[in-house]
Amino acid sequence: MAEQVALSRTQVCGILREELFQGDAFHQSDTHIFIIMGASGDLAKKKIYPTIWWLFRDGLLPENTFIVGYARSRLTVADIRKQSEPFFKATPEEKLKLEDFFARNSYVAGQYDDAASYQRLNSHMNALHLGSQANRLFYLALPPTVYEAVTKNIHESCMSQIGWNRIIVEKPFGRDLQSSDRLSNHISSLFREDQIYRIDHYLGKEMVQNLMVLRFANRIFGPIWNRDNIACVILTFKEPFGTEGRGGYFDEFGIIRDVMQNHLLQMLCLVAMEKPASTNSDDVRDEKVKVLKCISEVQANNVVLGQYVGNPDGEGEATKGYLDDPTVPRGSTTATFAAVVLYVENERWDGVPFILRCGKALNERKAEVRLQFHDVAGDIFHQQCKRNELVIRVQPNEAVYTKMMTKKPGMFFNPEESELDLTYGNRYKNVKLPDAYERLILDVFCGSQMHFVRSDELREAWRIFTPLLHQIELEKPKPIPYIYGSRGPTEADELMKRVGFQYEGTYKWVNP
Rank of each mutant, 00 (worst) to 15 (best):
A6L: 11
A6I: 12
L7Y: 13
C13G: 09
I15Y: 09
R17Q: 13
L20R: 11
F21C: 12
F21P: 09
Q22R: 13
G23H: 15
D24T: 08
D24A: 09
Q28K: 12
T31F: 10
T31E: 12
H32W: 08
H32Q: 10
I33S: 06
I33V: 12
I36P: 01
I36L: 06
G38L: 03
S40Y: 03
L43D: 02
L43A: 01
A44W: 04
K45F: 06
K47D: 01
K47P: 01
K47G: 00
K47C: 00
T51Q: 11
I52S: 04
I52Q: 04
W53K: 02
W53I: 01
W53A: 00
L55Q: 10
F56S: 04
F56T: 05
F56Q: 04
R57A: 08
D58P: 03
D58R: 08
E63D: 14
E63K: 15
N64E: 11
T65A: 10
T65P: 06
V68N: 02
V68G: 06
V68L: 08
V68T: 06
Y70D: 04
Y70S: 09
A71I: 03
R74H: 11
T76S: 12
V77G: 08
V77P: 10
V77Q: 11
V77E: 12
A78G: 14
D79S: 13
I80N: 05
R81D: 05
R81G: 05
Q83R: 13
S84T: 13
S84K: 03
P86H: 11
F87L: 12
F88H: 02
A90S: 07
A90R: 07
E94M: 08
K95T: 11
L96S: 14
L98D: 00
L98Q: 06
L98A: 06
D100V: 10
D100C: 11
D100G: 11
F101D: 00
F102K: 03
A103C: 11
N105L: 11
S106T: 14
Y107K: 01
V108N: 06
A109C: 13
A109R: 12
G110E: 05
G110Y: 00
G110H: 01
Q111A: 14
Y112L: 01
A116V: 11
S117Q: 09
S117K: 08
Y118C: 07
Q119N: 15
Q119E: 14
S123N: 14
S123L: 15
S123W: 15
S123R: 15
M125G: 05
M125H: 01
A127Q: 15
L128V: 12
L128P: 10
H129M: 15
G131S: 15
G131L: 08
S132N: 14
S132Q: 15
S132R: 15
A134W: 05
A134H: 11
N135V: 06
R136L: 05
R136E: 03
L137P: 03
F138Y: 13
Y139M: 08
Y139K: 00
Y139S: 07
A141R: 02
A141Q: 08
A141K: 04
L142T: 06
P143Q: 01
Y147T: 00
E148N: 09
A149H: 14
V150K: 00
T151P: 03
T151C: 11
K152H: 15
I154N: 01
I154L: 15
H155W: 11
H155Y: 13
S157F: 13
M159P: 10
S160F: 05
S160M: 07
S160G: 12
I162A: 13
G163D: 01
W164R: 07
N165G: 09
I168S: 07
V169F: 08
V169Y: 08
E170T: 05
E170L: 01
K171A: 00
K171W: 04
P172M: 01
P172A: 03
P172D: 02
P172R: 01
F173M: 08
F173R: 01
R175S: 12
L177F: 09
Q178M: 14
Q178C: 15
S179H: 04
S180G: 06
D181H: 07
D181I: 05
L183A: 02
L183H: 02
S184E: 01
S184A: 12
N185A: 13
H186M: 11
S188R: 09
S189V: 09
S189D: 12
L190C: 13
L190H: 13
F191H: 03
E193I: 03
E193V: 08
D194L: 07
Q195W: 07
Q195P: 01
Y197D: 00
R198N: 00
I199P: 00
I199Q: 06
D200V: 04
H201A: 01
H201L: 04
Y202L: 03
G204K: 02
K205H: 01
E206Y: 09
E206Q: 09
V208E: 04
V208M: 14
V208I: 09
V208D: 04
N210F: 04
M212E: 02
M212S: 01
V213S: 11
R215K: 08
R215M: 00
F216H: 02
A217T: 11
N218H: 03
N218M: 03
I220P: 03
F221P: 03
G222E: 15
G222P: 11
P223Q: 11
P223F: 04
R227I: 01
D228N: 10
A231T: 08
V233K: 03
P240C: 09
T243K: 01
T243H: 02
E244S: 14
G247K: 05
G247A: 07
G248R: 06
F250W: 05
E252H: 15
F253K: 01
G254T: 04
I255A: 07
I256T: 09
